[in-house]
Design a protein around this nucleic acid. Sequence first.
DNA 1: GTCTATATAACGATAGAC
DNA 2: GTCTATCGTTATATAGAC
Lengths: 209, 209
Amino acid sequence: MSTQTLKRKSRIRERNEETILKAAEKIFSQQGFGAATTAEIAKSAGIPKANLHYYFNTKEDLYLRVLENILETWLIAAEDFTAEHEPKEALENYIRTKIELSRTCPEASKIFAKEIISGAPFLKKHLDKNVNPWINEKIKIFEGWIADGKMAPVDVRHLFFLIWSMTQTYADFNTQMTIVLEKNKLEKQDYETAAEMIINMTFSLCKLN
Amino acid sequence: MSTQTLKRKSRIRERNEETILKAAEKIFSQQGFGAATTAEIAKSAGIPKANLHYYFNTKEDLYLRVLENILETWLIAAEDFTAEHEPKEALENYIRTKIELSRTCPEASKIFAKEIISGAPFLKKHLDKNVNPWINEKIKIFEGWIADGKMAPVDVRHLFFLIWSMTQTYADFNTQMTIVLEKNKLEKQDYETAAEMIINMTFSLCKLN
DNA sequence: GTCTATATAACGATAGAC
DNA sequence: GTCTATCGTTATATAGAC
């Protein structure tokens, strides 16, 4: 392998991998790992199936790359959750960011949801190694806020379970919502209403009003 | 067809169908419709694959029967949501019932979740015909309560989206929860904590305290 | 790097002996 | 009603010409 290939992929490879990953995200979000087919992903990407296997050896490799991209996006979104903030602005900011992700990248949330519902066969190790340390760090911040009398004592882990569910449901269950709301797709106002209600409920629970 | 077979299925058929449906619920909840295989369901039920196809002609037939059973269970659980109740007891009762369903029948919730996330290919018509009339009926009850000053004016559809998400997440995402809570499975206390927090948040939003 | 053709395995479903 | 053997199809993945 030349130093060139070690330094960076060719432009063609980079562009094609991007196209395939984009198509894979769409198909995996609709079908899940097991039901998705490489033929359908290739067709959606507009390339022959053999080319897909040229860029990603196996379907599993492709799926893992898609999962990596999702987790990277989510990690960036959750960064500014530090003790320097007040709980009110930190929670409001987090909820608005999560709702915005559900609005702009529902496919990512759906892939993650299907993976977890299936028992997290690919992500179990990642959750152990990354999500648990992350949430344990956040718990310390919340405990500081609670000790300072800045918010009511709540079960922080369950608080996160509920915030995750309320924000991500606007991605995962958007099909059901469009049916109930009798519209073709959710509008920006729907996400705004959701954010306001979730923030309201969270502030009340934490006595931040 | 004899009057006997019209009246009821044979005991053998009834027992075997039950065994297969139970196994199917488990496999479909883990794999979804597309990724589940009849071979795996048959193996889980402890019968040859050919027998499964003897009792259920196609995989789709089997899946539809499983979905029917789930919807029937959920319909029964949502019955006592009438204007005769006060909003406080009606909402608390509904939330506790939904959490209890997540605790006792997580597989049912998971199958439903995967079906909706996939775009509800099998349930779209059912949601149009059944869920929409149901929720429109509930909205009238809530509007009555709001007009009577019994609760704050809230967007009832979004309120249901949030209650559904918070209660069902304790079924759908129980894998993630056991990892974060570092225990083998959720305990009754976890569901109790969840119910209390959800009821607290809902009452606050609706100003029912 | 691209693409046709194909190898190998697994899938849903059925035939037919018992 | 049960079960082995197998059909036809489709899946993942690769070989090899270009």
